[in-house]
Design a protein around this nucleic acid. Structure first.
Length: 471
RNA sequence: GCUCCCAUCGUCUAGUGGCCUAGGACGCUGGCCUCUCACGCCGGUAACAGGGGUUCGAAUCCCCUUGGGAGCGCCA
């Protein structure tokens, strides 16, 4: 059997982490079986769908690396096909026109709720309407069976049984003739030969209706896998008020796509005690049937930890590639300064995000505007003028500008002055980096280069001389 | 309200009847390392929602309660 999975977002917003997770699961499933992954844009809601959202979703998929083999297909371009199926169903008596007004339906719903019943269409027009009211564009409803049950053999939920008596005749075409969601899904899954539908469990209740329509059309339903939703850290359904839910927001905040993917794959699924999964490992080890049936809460701290891990252990070249995007946002051109890959190697252990790393690395590429006030007050004091002056001479005289010789020079001056290394390294650090945070001082100076180092040392000495002696 | 789904540390999870005085990870926290910030290393904190069964034996199976979630649209 050929495996064909699909991701079918509606373009009414950005790609959010919940969607990204179901997309990942579908993609993984297709990849591990040598199958096909299809992207389908469900834009039948003309009111809410936007081209910007389509772009945002495509962009998110690309950034995550979830490449699709077919698509993107747009449902709005398949209207003729839906009309064709609707006509056929009407003709075969599997669907019928309904002239009930929205108002009447609303009253019906209210009455049913008052009677503590599940609100549903009562089938008024099901047997045909003798005198269709003039000027009313009827909707088309699917004739759902009255009796029997629909059994969903969900590969992550297990067997779920629905009574047909609980289901009503859903609308498959609006008054204006446009098809509705539950219907287009059925036609598309059928036409696209989808073998496995992996989607959010908010669709579990739609499944029996879809299966009934598939059956009416003579098509064997695909295998279903309903993955639980993602909850916010507070246990409520994940939403915008929980902060970042957009995939692209994570890019902008300095996350690596592999970190997000790794975080998402471990949400509701595990492989023993393993926490770190490369894409290849995910493809090899992921098992949809083992996905938890309970909802999982999104934990930003753990994502951050994973991001740090990938920054720290990832290929420096790869990290540098993504870092340059963030340096660019700071107005920095990484080609004007030390080799970015070397900067990454120096900084990788001290940043949880690329945005943070960019800020921490800015001083390599441009002069800082001012010293961190607290760090300057602590370290750029009159008593370091002498050691720093001596250090300046020592550094200026070095035959070669490389880490070991720089280190020897710094510790040599410290020793000569009877100071611990930190007593000289810290002022030096503030002098060149603007604050008391940087990679090891010898590495920092090596990357910064001799000219800038001496230049900034001179500026620091000047700063020490002109500051008021009251301190 | 009705239907469906779910329930192990704060969070993600291991666990599929004895290996569990419940393991790992994030977080938090004590210590070590140290030129800063970090990384790393060692240690600590903390859970089977409650009640009934089944069984020689239950976190694991069944039922009930409670608590969460989803659906019930001419939205997807």
């Amino acid at each position: 059997m050929t495996i064909r999975t699909r991701f079918a977002p509606s373009p009414t917003g950005y790609l959010h982490v919940g969607g990204a997770r179901t997309a990942l699961f579908s993609w993984l499933y297709a990849r591990q079986h040598g199958g096909t992954f299809i992207l389908r844009i469900e834009d039948t809601d003309l009111e809410r769908s936007t081209a910007e959202s389509v772009d945002a979703i495509l962009q998110g998929m690309t950034w995550l690396g979830l490449e699709y083999d077919e698509g993107p297909f747009f449902q709005t371009q398949r209207f003729p096909r839906y009309q064709e199926v609707i006509r056929q169903m009407l003709k075969d008596g599997q669907a019928y026109h309904c002239y009930c007004s929205k108002e009447r339906l609303e009253i019906l719903r209210t009455e049913q709720m008052a009677r503590k019943e599940k609100p549903r269409y009562n089938g008024k027009c099901r047997q045909g309407v003798a005198n269709p009211p003039a000027g009313v564009m009827p909707v088309v409803r699917f004739k759902n069976p009255h009796d029997g049950v629909v059994v969903v053999e969900d590969i992550i939920r297990g067997r779920v049984v629905f009574q047909n008596s609980e289901l009503d005749d859903l609308i498959i075409a609006r008054g204006d003739g446009s098809p509705t969601y539950n219907f287009t899904v059925v036609v598309d899954d059928m036409d696209m030969n989808i073998s496995h539908v992996i989607r959010g469990d908010d669709h579990l209740n739609n499944t029996p209706r879809q299966m009934n329509m598939l059956k009416a059309l003579g098509f064997t339903p695909p295998v279903y896998a309903h993955v639980p939703m993602i909850l916010g850290p507070d246990g409520a359904r994940l939403s915008k008020r929980h902060g970042a839910v957009s995939v692209m927001q994570y890019r902008d905040d300095g996350y690596l796509p592999e970190a997000l993917l790794n975080y998402l794959v471990r949400l509701g699924w595990s492989h023993g005690d393993q926490e770190i999964f490369s894409i290849d490992e995910m493809i090899k080890l992921f098992d949809v049937t083992q996905v938890h049936s309970s909802a999982a809460a999104f934990n930003p701290e753990k994502l951050l930890w994973l991001n740090q891990h990938y920054i720290k252990d990832g290929d420096p070249k790869h990290v540098a590639h993504h870092l340059s995007h963030h340096l660019g946002k700071l107005g920095i051109d990484p080609s004007q300064g030390p080799d970015l890959i070397e900067v990454v190697k120096a900084q990788r252990e001290r940043a949880k995000t690329l945005a943070e790393m960019a800020i921490n690395s800015a001083f390599f590429y441009r002069n800082f505007d001012s010293y961190d006030a607290k760090d300057a007050a602590t370290h750029l004091k009159p008593e370091v003028e002498k050691p720093l002056t001596q250090l300046r001479e020592s550094l200026a005289a070095l035959p070669r500008w490389e880490a070991p010789t720089i280190h020897d020079a710094v510790s040599g001056v410290a020793e000569a002055q009877g100071l611990k290394l930190g007593k000289i390294a810290q002022p030096l650090r503030v002098a060149v980096a603007g604050r008391a945070i940087s990679p090891p001082i010898d590495v920092t100076l090596t990357l910064l280069g001799r000219d800038k180092t001496l230049e900034r040392l001179d500026a620091a000495l000047e700063h020490i001389r002109i500051q008021p002696v009251t301190a």
